[in-house]
Computed example of a mutant assay.
Amino acid sequence: MALSEKLDSIPPSLIRRFFDLASSMKDIISLSIGEPDFDTPQHIKEYAKEGLDKGYTHYGPNIGLYMLREAIAEKLRRDNNIDIDPEKEIIITVGANMPILMGLATFLREGEEVLIPEPVFVSYAPAVILAGGKPVMVPTREEEEFKPRNEDLKNYVSEKTRALIINTPNNPTGTVYTRKDLEEIADFAVEHDLMIISDEVYEYIVYDGFKHISIASLNGLFERTITVNGFSKTFAMTGWRIGFAVAPSWVIEKMVKLHMYTVTCPVTFIQYAVAKALRDKRSWDAVENMRREYQRRRDLVWKRINEIGLSAFKPKGAFYIFPNIRNTGLKSMMFSEKLLREAKVAVVPGIAFGKEYDQYIRISYAVKYEKLNEALDRIEDFLRNKGMI
């Protein structure tokens, strides 16, 4: 199938649909988009200006500036227990979406299958399709904290299965995988000889004493794992579009070739700024301040959601909550549209994250505390006026 045909087969993102619709209306409180409301820390902006002044305005290496690859390697050793060669085992990319497609393209053959536990971020299945594969969706259950169990995965694995995509902390549920969870997934991957794409962009946004663990740090897993990450969420740099992938050298070599013939390289002065930021204590102080505020908001929204008569798994990470709206009698699309038009609150219908989740909605609490509280008041009034609570 030609790339143009694959593109025709992929529907637009429902997240963007509701974001765009909300943007065209007045007095909307948007809880739909997964973007930090914090500004990029000032010292990181200053580093970008410094990079410009120092002449980082030209092409960089296809693989990314060495100074940034080295700084990320230091961070990986310190925080993730992953020891890599910055020369050969890391690539700097334009955001963290791109390396998912790039990573799949390095090994996936036409028609091979990729297991994707649901509910799931909307980009994964399209990336598999564009890379020539077939996404195989694996439902998970709220009562099991939306975690994929090996018995579930075994029901969907086949001779054509080549890889598994995981996301922890998870978008849209806020689930965080424990070491035990990852060890079970690792055993499954080894047993079925699967590659793993591990999306870890929310790694520093965790609560209640949880600690993020990278599956590539487990014994023997590095050689079959492509770890995808970036700085959009960590340093509130969504518009800067800078990410990275860590993988065995044979994977990175192929990803560099794809980079070479698409984007050439990420913006060089931004790479300079991030390299400096990674070694600056102020950056990590800012990360911790943001994490604390996200936890404060998580506590508010989880408490209010349960008080108003809905229910939700308590997120352990990221900045999303995935309420169950079964009691309202509405499916997620109808609920979200009515909420937007009548209460002027934008959320994302659960069906955007998997067909099994049409009785859920996703709320992003990456908005100011006061605005979040106002949005929850509007949701409560909407439910009460409709006789749903």
Results as ranks from 00 to 15, higher is better:
359 Q>F: 09
282 R>D: 13
127 A>Q: 11
42 Q>T: 12
182 L>T: 08
267 V>M: 09
117 P>F: 03
70 E>I: 02
343 A>C: 06
181 D>A: 07
278 L>M: 10
373 N>C: 01
95 G>R: 04
317 G>H: 03
28 I>S: 05
161 T>C: 06
238 T>W: 13
72 I>V: 12
8 D>H: 08
56 Y>L: 08
50 E>F: 01
71 A>E: 07
372 L>Q: 01
167 N>S: 14
349 P>N: 04
91 I>H: 02
261 Y>M: 11
188 F>T: 05
192 H>Q: 02
326 R>V: 10
204 Y>E: 15
290 M>F: 08
275 A>H: 03
370 E>F: 02
347 V>H: 00
41 P>F: 02
274 V>H: 07
331 K>M: 10
123 S>V: 15
197 I>T: 04
72 I>L: 09
186 A>E: 04
36 P>Q: 07
267 V>H: 08
231 F>K: 09
31 L>S: 03
61 P>L: 10
371 K>R: 09
215 I>D: 06
177 Y>G: 05
341 R>L: 12
219 N>H: 14
347 V>T: 11
368 K>L: 10
84 I>R: 06
107 F>S: 02
204 Y>V: 14
333 M>G: 01
33 I>N: 09
118 E>I: 01
335 F>E: 06
327 N>Q: 14
272 Y>L: 08
88 K>V: 05
296 R>K: 10
371 K>I: 07
384 R>E: 13
225 T>M: 09
231 F>Y: 15
32 S>C: 14
170 N>Q: 14
362 R>E: 11
263 V>E: 13
21 L>F: 13
86 P>H: 03
30 S>C: 10
123 S>A: 15
227 T>P: 04
247 A>Q: 03
120 V>T: 15
82 I>K: 02
8 D>K: 15
186 A>V: 05
365 Y>S: 01
